[in-house]
Write a protein that binds this DNA or RNA. Structure first.
Lengths: 238, 238
DNA sequence: TAGTGGTCTAGACCACTTT
DNA sequence: AAGTGGTCTAGACCACTAG
């Protein structure tokens, strides 16, 4: 293993400052030197120091305010990042064979709690799809999705017999914002039957809502058997 | 509501480029103009354009490689950010009264699966704590934690009768890295009894491991009744 | 090897907020 | 009023890699 090339200067400075925070040398709320002073101390331009501090602020390590200076952020608020891949990747990464199964696909007026997510005319019909993503002989994900036919009219003419709507949407609909909610539920009779798990089994549910220019595109419940799936964060700082 | 001050130039450029991606005008894999060209087009310095593109790359909207240029990123890999606050805040934010209850606190040799997380000598004794965080009359979180007594010797002399170890650690131990895993489990008899929920209830479990300079500090299972707690992501792009 | 992005400088002006 | 961070410029050199 050869020695790594030198890190860029701004990363070195960032690392040194972060080390002082992590070691407790700079404790919660402590004031850091100004950018000008740090630039002199490290014999570099102010912009270089600025970038170090800006990235530390983005990571939540420090807090910055004009005139007030840069301070070590209070702990106790932790951010965690989770990466989600498309189902097919998640399954093949685990070494399982992927199979898709359409359960139902109908166009109808959504119930009220779905209408609240999709917005628009309460009488408008939208596309409701239920399907399964199999990993070998187990159900890996049960997808229960509504697609907004106003924003995505193209979806109405598709059968989704061979391809899941989640994959089709990813490749065919430009989308901007996603909201997620992660919860643990218990498999009720119907869900247990569909997912081929015991009634009452724990289910990890990811609810996803996607929007485009503030117009809803689709919302979905993605349900996984608790023993097959969990979400891991990237290991990240503070 | 008065009009906002003009956005900084790099944000405007970022927004314009992003809009082209989101609208589909630039589709997956499409090549963007070079920094030099964009700088001319927007009549600004290259650094300003660079910052726009760098942030878009950080957000996963584009991918950049030297010589190869900047391309619209493939979709299907989504990042989601979740913010976690300390338990007391989570509870008071919901308008509930917080109460802490210590169940047990012992020093002993951990079982093997815990030792794998804590590292070091397999015979070394560590601090094992179980406690409850109540929200009004419901158990909001059941905390099952091991604290590494090699890295945090101070913890041995504390009783944790009034204050939970999670809160104490936050304020007293500098920590650098956190790893999380989120899963759905079913309340087995013992857990159901402790958490005062029905046997078999869904539990949202967050497993957290904290390290300091690559040495483990503590690991914990934070268990919440599925009907009381869920994790919401910040709404963020792509 | 040519062209891309990555970093860095020295200087400047501005916006904000505390004093 | 003064000092902080936020942004921006015009230039430079370097590291990487596709052609």
């Amino acid at each position: 293993m050869g020695k790594k090339a030198a890190q860029p200067l701004y990363k070195q400075i960032k690392a040194r400052l972060k080390a002082q925070v992590v070691s407790g040398e700079l404790s919660q709320g402590a004031l850091l030197p100004s950018e000008t002073e740090l630039a002199e101390r490290y014999s570099c331009s102010r912009l270089t120091v600025h970038r170090s501090l800006r990235e530390l602020a983005d990571e939540g390590v420090v807090e910055r305010r004009r005139r007030a200076g840069t301070r070590v952020a209070m702990r106790g608020n932790t951010g965690l990042r989770i990466r989600l891949s498309r189902v097919t990747e998640e399954i093949s990464r685990r070494g399982f064979a992927y199979r898709y199964e359409l359960i139902k696909s109908v166009v109808k007026t959504p119930p009220l709690h779905i209408h609240r997510l999709l917005g628009g005319d309460p009488e408008q019909e939208h596309l409701h799809i239920k399907c399964l993503h199999w990993a070998n002989n187990r159900v890996f994900q049960f997808e229960d999705r509504w697609v907004n036919l106003i924003t995505v009219p193209k979806a109405q003419s598709l059968s989704f017999e061979k391809m899941s709507p989640s994959l089709w949407l990813l490749d065919n609909v430009p989308l901007s914002d996603l909201e997620h909610e992660i919860s643990a539920i218990s498999a009720k009779t119907q869900i247990a039957n569909v997912m081929k798990v015991e009634k009452g089994s724990p289910i990890l549910e990811v609810t996803r809502r996607s929007t485009w220019n503030n117009q809803s595109v689709s919302c979905a419940r993605l349900m996984h058997p608790g023993d097959l799936y969990s979400l891991k964060s990237e290991r990240k700082a503070l």
